[in-house]
Simulated assay, not measured.
Amino acid sequence: MLTCDCNIYDFQLSDHKNNKYFYEIMTQGNLKTAINKAQKHFTKEYGHKATHLERNVTGYPLCKM
């Protein structure tokens, strides 16, 4: 049986233009690692980094990584 010593982080990234994305990220790293991964996705989607982070929330659109 395979096991993963991973952490799961749920959070929302948004910006001043009201763009929002919700993330559920499983990583062996810490919260900073998860945020960096999500910021890369957010930048790819919207062309700039998010300006706001809210932890422990879920919603739509949900990006699972």
Rank of each mutant, 00 (worst) to 15 (best):
Tyr9Arg: 02
Tyr21Asn: 06
Thr3Ile: 10
Gly47Ala: 08
Ala34Gly: 10
Asn36His: 09
Phe22Asp: 02
Asn7Ile: 04
Cys6Ala: 12
Gln39Thr: 03
Ile25Phe: 05
Met65Gln: 14
His41Lys: 04
Ile35Tyr: 12
Ile35Ser: 01
Phe42Glu: 01
Thr3Pro: 00
Ala34Phe: 10
Asn30Ser: 15
Lys17Val: 00
Tyr46Phe: 15
Lys17Pro: 00
Asn19Tyr: 11
Ala38Tyr: 00
Asp10Ala: 05
Arg55Leu: 14
Thr51Pro: 04
Glu24Pro: 00
Val57Asp: 05
Leu2Arg: 12
Met26Pro: 03
His41Glu: 01
Cys6Val: 14
Cys6Tyr: 15
Gln39Glu: 09
Glu24Ala: 01
Ile35Ala: 00
Lys32Asn: 11
Phe11Met: 06
Lys64Gly: 00
Lys44Leu: 06
Ile25Tyr: 01
Asp15Phe: 07
Asp10Phe: 14
Cys63Phe: 10
Ile25Gln: 02
Cys4Gln: 15
Lys64Asp: 04
Gln28Phe: 14
Leu53Ala: 03
Gln12Ile: 03
Tyr46Ser: 02
Lys64Cys: 01
Pro61Ser: 09
Asn7Cys: 11
Asn36Tyr: 05
Lys17Thr: 06
Tyr9Phe: 15
Thr51Asp: 14
Tyr23Trp: 12
Ile25Ser: 02
His52Ala: 07
His41Ile: 05
Asp5Ile: 10
Tyr9Pro: 07
Thr33Trp: 01
Cys4Lys: 14
Asn36Trp: 05
Phe22Arg: 01
